[in-house]
Every structure is written in structure tokens, then in C-alpha cells.
Nucleic acid binder design. Structure first.
Lengths: 192, 192
DNA sequence: ATGGGCATGTAACGAGTTACATGATTTT
DNA sequence: AAAATCATGTAACTCGTTACATGCCCAT
């Protein structure tokens, strides 16, 4: 039903499996729904743009991994509901069971800025780090809310939420340690 | 010397500043050198492809942020050394001192896979997590080596290396906790 | 002499974003 | 009546990768 590469596995990008995975929970969802759900994964996996969710859906459809049910709407557009197929389930499971681990991709701009800290004012760095600390606090709050709703139905997502909490807690501690070390190396000029 | 957007700041992607930042340590470097150095940032910021390093250099040059010194070579190609300019230093400092924090971008495929763990065999998940643990161990070793060479000359890179160590340690602990919880939820069928 | 590191470069592609455009429905 | 949310979709673009191609220099 689609142009598979030579080998057995179609080799889609992780984003495609993220969308497919969201459908694996069994519900029939629209592109709009998926966009919202994908936002709940932002704590550990970046949220794709809306337009990409739609294009991934088209691709998954062309591979036969999902099925589409159209519901005519008053306007010119059609409301489209998606559901995972057996082939989709098989593909997802194959992806989940792969041997390679593909390590996390991190683009940590705050660390990058600190790395070049020699070129900045220590007070600026402190401001950046405090801003990051503030963002971390927000994340922890938000993730806590999301995580609380997951048990008992969603064991694995809950497991990931707990992991995420640990990550954000550790990150917070690390930033505070950096801030302390920064004060040691370059004592604040004034209370800023 | 180039098409600046309306505002004062040219608004380049972070990757450009990563390259510019590497040149801010003062040495004159080739594209090849930069490629190697950028690999040492992989612990907290993904390493761009070789071809991108070269294209970022062309762009930085067109902005007047770096200068090029050509050294004719025996073959048809020219060896090109790059050095940061005053304008480049100014641009870098402006970028470092910005107010916005732009939060880290994470694409954590292992967490993503665990998130959809319902569709996988617990033993498969264990294998994946152990593989990740193994990668983490490697990272810690490598980062330790890199970090050791940084003091006393490179205080800020050293600070980042310490932060990185803390991150990898915390991540290791978190994975072990997940593994333990997994054993509690789904006791291993056999020793695999 | 052959293999690996140094060094630059290009072409084609895929991944992903921004900005825009449309219009129905629900809430205030 | 206005604003927010639901919902789909496209066009133009940038970012970044893969794969290739070239050729020097050095060590074994």
C-alpha cells in the first residue's frame, strides 16, 4: 500500500512513532486531538508543529498504519478521525522492540551559554540561570499535574512522569550548585 | 556587510553561536578543527554535521562575525583559517546576555519508548533500559576525561562538565529506579 | 603501498517551522 | 457581538543530514 524500502522495516522518524504511539492507546482521534496530546509529551520529547502532525498522519495513512474515518462537516472541510490498524500495531511494536537505543538528543542552550560564560558578565549568567530555575519550577508543577491523572490506567506514562520528576529535580539541584560555584568564583557585585 | 533584519540583532540559530563561541576562545581554527571541538559539546548540545559547520562558517563570514585567512595548498583546494572579529565578539556577547532563556530541547527516545511500554514486552523494555544504562556509563567516562583537562584555564567549560556529570549520574539513578519498578510491576519471566 | 587522519566541498533530500487562510462551534 | 477554541490545510522556507567526491600528508 506504500513504497516500503528494500528491507522489512519502513524506517520512519521517531516523530511518526510518537503519533502512532498516541493512537495505540486505542482511542479514535483527530489531528487536533493528537496535537494536544503530543503537548503532554513535551516534558521529555519536543512537541511537533501542528502542520507536522497532519503530515505525519498522511504518511502513516499511506503506510496503512492508521485508518481514516471522514465525517462531512457543514463547511468545505472534512473532519477526520484516525485509528491505529493491526499493521500499525505491528510496526509500533517492532519499533519499540528494536535493539538500538538511539541516545537522547539534547540541545541545552543554557549549558551552551554557560560554556561560553567567559564572554559574559557573571551577573548576566546568574540572571539566565535564575530564569532557567524558574522555568524548571513551572515544568515540575505542570508535570506533577499531568502525572497525577495517570494512575491506575496508564502505568507506563506514569512511570515516565516519575522519571521526569526526578530529572527536573536533579536539574534544579545542579543549577543551584552552579549558581553557588559562580558566587564563589565571582562574588556578586551588588544585590541584583 | 550582510542583510540584517530590521532590528539590531541578526537572530541566528543557536548552532551559529555554538560555532562562533568556539572561536571566542581566541584560537584561529579550520572548519575541520571546529568539527572536532563541536564534538566535545555533544554531552549537552548535539553535534552538527560536518557540512553544517562549513555552511555556518560561510554565514558567519557573510555577517562579518569572523574573518578568513586562506593558505594556498598544493592541491586545488585552499586551507581556510577562521578567527572571530570584534563584531563577532559583540554579537556573541549580545546573544549570551539576552533575557529569554530558551529552554532545553529534549528528544528522549528511550523515555518515548517507555511511554508506550504497554505495547512492548517487559523484557524488551528491560533490554532497552539496560542498553541505555550502558550508553550512560560510556558518556560518564568520556565526559570525565574531557572534564579533567579543562581546569584551570577553562573555568566555564569545566563548570558545564561538572553539571553534565551530575546530569548523567542522576539519569543513571533514575533508570535504575525505573528498572526496579518494572521488576515490581512485571517480574522477569526468566533470567534473560 | 595502503590505510587513516586532515581538509574542503557539493547535491539531494528529509525534517520541521512559520505564517497564513478558512470557517464552524462554543463560551462569555 | 466578540473572543476563544475546534479543526483542517497549504506554501515557503530553514535547518540539518547523508552520501558522495577530491586530494594531501603521515605512519606502518
Amino acid at each position: 500500500m506504500a513504497d516500503h524500502p528494500r528491507s522489512g522495516a519502513p524506517e520512519l522518524p521517531a516523530t511518526a512513532y510518537a503519533v502512532l504511539g498516541l493512537l495505540s492507546f486505542g482511542r479514535e482521534l483527530t489531528g487536533y486531538d493528537l496535537r494536544k496530546w503530543s503537548k503532554n509529551m513535551r516534558f521529555f520529547y519536543w512537541s511537533p508543529a501542528q502542520s507536522q502532525v497532519y503530515s505525519e498522519l498522511r504518511r502513516l495513512l499511506s503506510h496503512g498504519y492508521i485508518s481514516e474515518r471522514q465525517e462531512p462537516q457543514p463547511g468545505p472541510q472534512t473532519k477526520r478521525y484516525y485509528r491505529i490498524t493491526d499493521a500499525g500495531m505491528t510496526a509500533l511494536r517492532a519499533w519499540l522492540g528494536r535493539d538500538e537505543v538511539d541516545p537522547p538528543v539534547i540541545k541545552h542552550s543554557v549549558m551552551l551559554r554557560l560554556f561560553f560564560g567567559q564572554q559574559a558578565e557573571p551577573d548576566e549568567l546568574r540572571r539566565t540561570l535564575r530564569g532557567y530555575l524558574c522555568w524548571l519550577r513551572e515544568q515540575r508543577t505542570d508535570l506533577g499535574e499531568v502525572g497525577r491523572g495517570l494512575l491506575p490506567a496508564f502505568q507506563y506514562p506514569h512511570l515516565v512522569a516519575v522519571w521526569g520528576q526526578a530529572y527536573y529535580a536533579a536539574e534544579t539541584a545542579a543549577v543551584e550548585a552552579v549558581l553557588a560555584e559562580l558566587d564563589r568564583l565571582h562574588p556578586p557585585t551588588a544585590e541584583d
